[in-house]
């Protein structure tokens, strides 16, 4: 794949660009890592006061939260900057990208890859390690595979959500923070066991939008627990499939969005 070398060159260029602002990079990297720490702290505070919430112990809740956190941290680092699309449109970067012989989305992502978010991934990995340690997982080859696959599926799923909510700007320039209801909102939703939620809100987020399959269902499968909401045990293994569907939808919407692109000014 000759294109891969081109993308590699773009990432290298982005890395060297960032390296010319060393201090801001370090400041931003540490404050970024703190957001992950705060997310986890929130879970600890809310669950820590009690023995169990909605039938889940602190250790089990931590497993759900850390799976979500790792998938989200990966997606936010690799794809999250797509939500700057509006800025790219205004600065003309989008035009420049479209006259080059590479895919527009990959190019955008490679040209503005936020390396400062890397520490969050490390932190999320550590928390996942702790959560695994605290829970008594009965390891099978299937569960080992699931442990590796579900954060990757989380990456793809959240990546798709990032692309979808950014694509809104192609049609609705003033969409403002609307996208974050699904990106950061999705992260918050997936940080807790689904039985915490109720009613149509749960049905929409967990099943219609698929957020239930990011962390909650895989965590149940890892723990060998039955779902109090009645989904079968193998539902946890659906997460790669759900992520794939989301990615296909996101790719189609992005393509349609680029066709609909209006550019700006002169």
């Amino acid at each position: 794949m000759a294109d891969l070398r081109a993308y590699g060159a773009l990432i290298g260029g982005q890395f060297r660009s960032i390296a010319s602002y060393r201090v801001s990079f370090l400041v931003e990297m540490s404050s970024n890592a703190m957001t992950t720490a705060l997310d986890i702290t929130t879970v600890l505070v809310l669950f820590g006061a009690n023995r169990s919430v909605a039938g889940f112990s602190l250790a089990e809740a931590l497993l759900v939260a850390s799976l979500s956190s790792l998938g989200f941290a990966l997606a936010d680092m690799l794809v999250g900057n797509v939500d700057h699309l509006k800025t790219y449109v205004r600065s003309g970067l989008m035009d420049v990208i479209l006259v080059r012989p590479l895919g527009s989305l990959w190019q955008l992502l490679c040209m503005d890859l936020p390396f400062r978010k890397a520490l969050r991934v490390v932190l999320a990995l550590v928390v996942l390690g702790v959560a695994i340690h605290l829970n008594d997982v009965d390891w099978t080859p299937g569960r080992v595979a699931l442990l590796v696959l579900s954060p990757l599926a989380g990456l793809v799923f959240f990546g798709a959500i990032f692309v979808l909510s950014a694509s809104l700007a192609f049609w609705w320039v003033d969409s403002g923070e609307l996208g974050s209801a699904f990106t950061y909102g999705g992260r918050d939703f997936t940080s807790y066991p689904v039985p915490v939620y109720a009613g149509w809100f749960r049905a929409v987020f967990a099943y219609a939008l698929g957020f239930g399959f990011v962390a909650y269902q895989p965590a149940l499968a890892l723990l060998g627990r039955t779902d109090p909401l009645g989904l079968p045990a193998w539902a946890g293994y659906l997460s790669p499939l759900v992520a794939l569907v989301a990615a296909v939808v996101a790719a189609l919407v992005w393509r349609a969005g680029v066709r609909h692109y209006r550019s700006t000014g002169s």
Binding site: R5, A6, A9, G12, S17, S20, D95, V96, V99, R100
Partner: peptide, 29 residues
């Protein structure tokens, strides 16, 4: 085709000029 926009840059803002040329060599193969 080659495109020059007078009001938007296709060069890498923070890198030496020659690095932009090298990057474009990779992009266009």
């Amino acid at each position: 085709i080659g495109v020059v926009f007078g009001q938007r840059s296709q060069l890498w803002w923070d890198l030496p000029l020659h690095e932009s040329f090298t990057l474009l060599r990779h992009i266009y193969r």
